[in-house]
Structure formats: structure tokens, C-alpha cells
Design a protein around this nucleic acid. Sequence first.
DNA 1: GTACATGCAAACGTTTTGCAGCGAA
DNA 2: TTCGCTGCAAAACGTTTGCATGTAC
Lengths: 149, 149
Amino acid sequence: MTRSPDVPPVAVEDLADAVRLLRERGLRLSTARRLVLETLLAADGPLSAEQVASDLRLDLTSVYRNLETLEQCGLVRHVHLGHGPGLYTLVGRGEHEYLVCDSCGAVRVLAPGELDAVREGVRRQFGYEVRFGHFPMVGKCPDCSDRAR
Amino acid sequence: MTRSPDVPPVAVEDLADAVRLLRERGLRLSTARRLVLETLLAADGPLSAEQVASDLRLDLTSVYRNLETLEQCGLVRHVHLGHGPGLYTLVGRGEHEYLVCDSCGAVRVLAPGELDAVREGVRRQFGYEVRFGHFPMVGKCPDCSDRAR
DNA sequence: GTACATGCAAACGTTTTGCAGCGAA
DNA sequence: TTCGCTGCAAAACGTTTGCATGTAC
């Protein structure tokens, strides 16, 4: 889904932070869940469920269920950079917005705030508060735009 | 894929237009292909391959292959409005840009040119020529933004 | 007659569901 | 001692591929 969970996003600093949040919802810290959280905390970019599972030798199903649970808690988000698997990050940790070129496939990772002017424009014009962290902006990069002429 | 075909998009007015284009590439107008084209010409919004196939009682595979071929020719595009199947339209016919709310799921269909200011902003800042017809802009609609306060 | 296109079957990659048993609280 | 969580198996979903047959040109 494009649908985000009905809870506000929460940026978590460390495992203890995350555990607190889980506890508030009556959720446990199983070994698998701890490992998934540690992996996401250590990651410097978004990871697929498959990557997480095989790194940790965990069952893929279990990883998907944990990512889903964490996403439901507002701790995790996923992005679709193309037609491959969804890529997961902790909120505020390796989470980015993206600009991808549909000609050459180049992915430009944007710095936090780099899209604020765009976001503000959209907000003024449409009232929507947009984010390009679930679906990237898609277009032609400068090189490919030139090449098209 | 996020990848678009290596040909410029072509807006087609009627079946004859489309056939001309196909001919130029040595492609044929089979019964199935004609039906797919007619369906897209008659549609007022984007359609999934499944919808096209079951409306026409055509094999799903064949519909996918035709949509792919037509997309390769620059006649067709598809959009991903969420996690469901891709939705296909003729270029310039039911093709739009989209703004979707990730809280309530509302899809706002944008008029042609409505995003030109945003597009221009992105072009100036990043040099990218963006389009929100493959992936929509995702965010919170005014109502859901308010509710979050 | 020559390909291109078709239908059917089977596979694909990603994600979800069902279920019996394990283990965190 | 609960009941949330696990692994495994199987299915669901959208999409693609292989192949023998059919058909537009």
C-alpha cells in the first residue's frame, strides 16, 4: 500500500528507545525482533526484507512480519525505488527522499530539507504535505534531458 | 520498472494513428491488439491489465505483452497508484499526474499543467524534468494534515 | 510463406496467510 | 502461564517466460 500507519512517525535513537515504544503497545522484544532493529540501526541505507533475513539467517516471513509491526508503530518506513522489493529504514535513520531518472536509472539521494522549497510550493498550491520517501520523484536527469534534444 | 522506453511519448488520436505508428516499426494489428487499443481509446481513466483482459475475454498474458509493446512504442504509459497492479493509459488520453493521500487514500487527479510550477521549481533546483504520472506525489491531504494536529 | 502474435501452462519475485510449537513477560 | 512471536509450508499476487499454434501481412 501507499497507506501509512495511523500513528505519527517516531525517530528512534537506539534499541532502548525502540523497546520503550514496543512496550507501550504490549509488544515483546524477541530475539528476531531485536536483531532486525539492530540491523536497521546499523544500516546506512534502506534494506530489503530479503537482505535483512539472509544477513541474520532469520526466516523471511518473520522479517516481513517484524518490519510490518515496526512500520505500524511508526518506527519504520519503506520506499519503492523501482520495480524491485520494498526497501526498509528506521524513521530518521537512513531514511531519505529520492529523485530518480527514468532514462538512465540514476538515483539521486536528497539531503534532508533539500526538497523543502518544493514541499512548500505543493503545500501552498494544494494543501498537501508531501514526502518523496515512499515513491521517489521520477523524471529525466540533466544528462538524459539534454540527450533527448 | 521505473524505466521509460527509449522513444519519445506519442499522443494518438484514433486507431488509424496508432496503426501508422505500429507499421513504422514492422508491428502488426492483430485482433487482440486492436481490441486493447480500442479499449484504451474509449477509457476515461487508467486500466489494469486484468481489467482489459477480462473485459475483452483476452488472455492476460497477451494483454500484458500488448501493453508492453505499446509502451515501448511510446503510445502507452502506466502508473502505480499504490501497491496494486499497474494502471495503463494511452499517452495523452486518460493520462494524468496524481497527488495521493497516504492517510485516507484519496487520489487527486491533477489537470494538465497544474504541476508546472512545481516541475519548474524542481528543474531549476536539480535540473531534472519530473513527471508525477508514473509514481504519484504522496503526502497528507489537507484534512488528514489537520487531523494530525 | 514468413514472422509476428496468440493462448495456455508454468515460472517468477515479492509478500501474505495458516498453523503448530516456542519463548518472553 | 499466557499469548506474542517464531519457523516452515503453502498460497496469493502481479507479472514474465517458453512453447506450439495461429494469423496478419
